[in-house]
Design a binder for these strands. Structure first.
Lengths: 204, 204
DNA sequence: ATAAATTTAGAACAATTGGTCAGTAACCAT
DNA sequence: ATGGTTACTGACCAATTGTTCTAAATTTAT
């Protein structure tokens, strides 16, 4: 590879890296090409020399990110044997290496770290917390009545609400009946789990 | 109430309604004041007469929405007795009346129904589906090995991935350890459920 | 009927955006 | 060294944005 080609590749990588971080911090829409230009010292025109458009740049970043994640996980994976362990491992890997994955944070307008949209952020936080509190109350009742095992109701409420809010993102192409089925299944899983009855409940 | 006041209130409501639908369809950023003006026939200036800003309008919409949701749910709630039923009921109510709640869809830049950002949408769909397929494979292995109950692995994969992607949104203020704990708890719940051992497994 | 107050309209504004383009600099092959 | 190719710059553009402002229309109060 040429000295020129090397430098060019480095520039492209520099752009992609800065873009990735900015997309995480500010979200896609709020990140402007000029932001990326400022952050890298690379001119706007040059960015458009390396990437056909802002969309193209985003997709490139997303793609590289995903590839990298998969490679790293496959490496981690080796140390686990049972599927149960792997499920836990994948979650751990997700949190540690991938805290800001595009599918969680970047595809989000409001919760970016540097966003000045604090009014709306506060409102959304408030709404979320209200809902979690409500779920917590509900779950506490279930625990009190002996319907559920004694447990940390706040944690359970967060998990329950996650299912409610998150399932929508996973199944946008489903019709109403399919959606309802998925939700019902999720609640059932939440209630009864997926472990086989004879599997050792070796958690905690 | 005056004839004038009534008409004014109606205008305000018309604006809020149109804004709500546009926020659902296009997301917050992609919805412009002019869009709302066009959709309602109410002039831009008039919108700013009724609401102090775009943020203010959004927060107003969010607030009304949340109030309405809670009222309707509390009505529904009466028909259920056990907490288990209520959890199922809340999910059902969520899907039917609240399919596009701001906490799922509006706070999202890309998946709006009318968005022209199809390139990125496709890419994200692809990424999601790749991940779901991967989880499905993993879960299938667990089922095959007898670790998990025999079940629809695709549904389970969607639920599992929802936990992975969704938990982040619920717990942005937690530190790493707390986050890891929450994830671990979620996986455990996914595996073993929350129902007490002596509760009747009367689902399905 | 007239004045005051409220409600509405739409032109105008400053800022920002993604994207283009003509020109310059750096490097390569010959 | 020179001509050609690649990499890069920064001014520029058209479009869009949230917001403001002035003035007109409508209703109410006197």
């Amino acid at each position: 590879m040429n000295k020129k080609q090397t430098k060019s590749m480095l520039t492209k990588k520099k752009i992609a890296d800065a873009a990735k971080h900015l997309f995480i911090q500010k979200g896609y829409t709020a990140t402007s090409i000029e932001n990326i230009s400022d952050a890298t010292g690379v001119s706007k025109g040059n960015i458009y020399y390396h990437f056909e458009s802002k969309e193209g740049l985003f997709i490139y970043v997303l793609d590289e990110w995903e590839k990298e994640w998969m490679e790293q996980w496959e490496e981690q994976r080796k140390q686990y044997t049972s599927t149960t362990e792997q499920l836990h491992g994948i979650a751990k890997h997700f949190v540690i290496n991938d805290y800001n994955h595009p599918l969680t944070n970047v595809a989000d307008e409001f919760f970016s770290h540097e966003n000045s949209n604090t009014l709306i952020q506060n409102q959304l936080y408030k709404t979320i917390n209200t809902r979690i509190s409500y779920s917590q109350k509900l779950l506490s009742e279930g625990i009190a009545s002996g319907e559920f095992k004694s447990d940390d109701s706040l944690l359970l409420a967060k998990i329950f609400d996650t299912l409610l809010y998150g399932l929508n993102n996973i199944c946008r192409d489903l019709n109403m009946k399919e959606t309802l089925d998925l939700y019902a299944k999720a609640i059932d899983t939440f209630l009864y789990g997926i472990a086989s009855d004879d599997s050792a409940h070796s958690h905690d």
